[in-house]
């Protein structure tokens, strides 16, 4: 990874996470955006197309689409077609419950990845987190998608419940021609309430880090860069990419450093009224974030490997930036335990 080039500042993000709606037909206990009902002020179709225009003009390579549940938007597939016509790759994170043969056929052979969320290898593990019957619906979606030429991953949030089932999830994914992707649990949205109960402990995180080293085909979307071992060094980032390689757009068009930092103090601007290029290059919020230094980590032997870890977890557990990620493998001093109180 060309850190020195990233630090020089890119003209635009490499990818942008776009939460297209708060609407969701599930109420997962760890939902990062506290989704449920659609809300007033979500971007209209015309506004959403303007957002795509702005990002395509800057040659942003990829949209990572999330929500809420993206397929709750009636215009969602039209918007994806529009993004693809503009040469953008899309990665859709979905709960899978609304995917049927018709939707799978429409996504076939497009510039698209699909990530279907599943938080356990059995209904007994998954459904208490994601809702009754959700496991069976995801299996139906995976069946529909497996018949098409679409890159599919099962996306699992690492929790105390999913951790023991990772090997079974790898097998389950392979059964449907999919890969497994594991995401880090962060205490934002409803995750604040379930953090203490669901987040892995330090020992499990260390064990997971080793497991990742032995499963190089499992992807992480860089969400575990701070605990990566040398075996995975070449597979991704060794620092937080927020405001440097990526950022997040909320359903209302608000631009934030990342999906997990959407508190008012991180609002960098609103699309499409404001120009995205101006926000990316001149927003004081982004400039400040790019200059973030985790001073207390700089003398650590792992600093070059993680640069202090995930600022979002540090912020949500300690209510400030510039402090170490409490999930640090080196067991940094002056941080609370992983299951720290969430503000």
């Amino acid at each position: 990874m060309g850190n020195q080039y990233v630090e020089m500042g890119l003209t635009a993000p490499v990818n942008v996470t776009w939460e297209v709606t708060y609407g969701c037909n599930l109420t997962c206990v760890h939902c990062l955006s506290d989704s449920g009902n659609r809300r007033n002020g979500e971007l209209t179709t015309a506004q959403a197309r303007q957002v795509i225009d702005q990002l395509a003009r800057l040659n942003v390579f990829q949209f990572n689409i999330g929500g809420g549940e993206p397929f709750m938007r009636q215009d969602f597939l039209d918007l994806m077609d529009y993004a693809h016509e503009n040469g953008m790759v899309t990665c859709i994170s979905t709960n899978g419950t609304l995917i049927d043969d018709d939707i799978a056929a429409r996504l076939d052979r497009q510039l698209v990845y699909i990530q279907v969320s599943l938080d356990g290898a059995t209904p007994a593990t998954n459904d208490p987190i994601r809702g009754d019957g959700s496991f069976a619906k995801v299996i139906r979606a995976l069946t529909c998608l497996s018949r098409r030429d679409i890159e599919v991953s099962i996306n699992t949030v690492l929790t105390r419940l999913s951790f023991p089932e990772l090997d079974r999830l790898v097998t389950l994914a392979a059964d449907y021609g999919a890969k497994l992707r594991v995401s880090r649990f962060r205490p934002s949205g409803r995750g604040k309430q379930s953090w203490a109960q669901l987040n892995v402990n330090r020992g499990q995180m260390a064990e997971f880090s080793q497991w990742l080293a032995e499963h190089l085909a499992v992807s992480t979307g860089d969400s575990f860069f701070s605990v990566s071992t040398s075996e995975r060094r070449s597979l991704g980032l060794n620092m937080c990419g927020a405001c440097k390689l990526t950022c997040c757009i909320s359903p209302e068009g608000h631009v934030y450093p990342c999906a997990f930092l959407q508190d008012p103090e991180f609002l960098a601007g609103k699309l499409p009224d404001k120009d995205f290029e101006e926000i990316w290059q001149q927003s004081p919020v982004f400039e400040s974030f790019r200059g973030l230094e985790i001073k207390s980590c700089e003398s650590c032997h792992r600093f070059d490997l993680c640069h202090g870890g995930c600022p979002a977890i540090a912020y949500h557990t300690q209510r400030k930036l510039g402090v170490p990620d409490p999930g640090c493998l080196a067991n940094c001093v002056s941080v609370k335990p992983v299951a720290a109180e969430v503000h």
Partner: peptide, 15 residues
Amino acid sequence: VQVRRETFGLLFYDY
């Protein structure tokens, strides 16, 4: 594969 110009040179993205 996509490419764009940056201050250091070229940034390639391989889908």
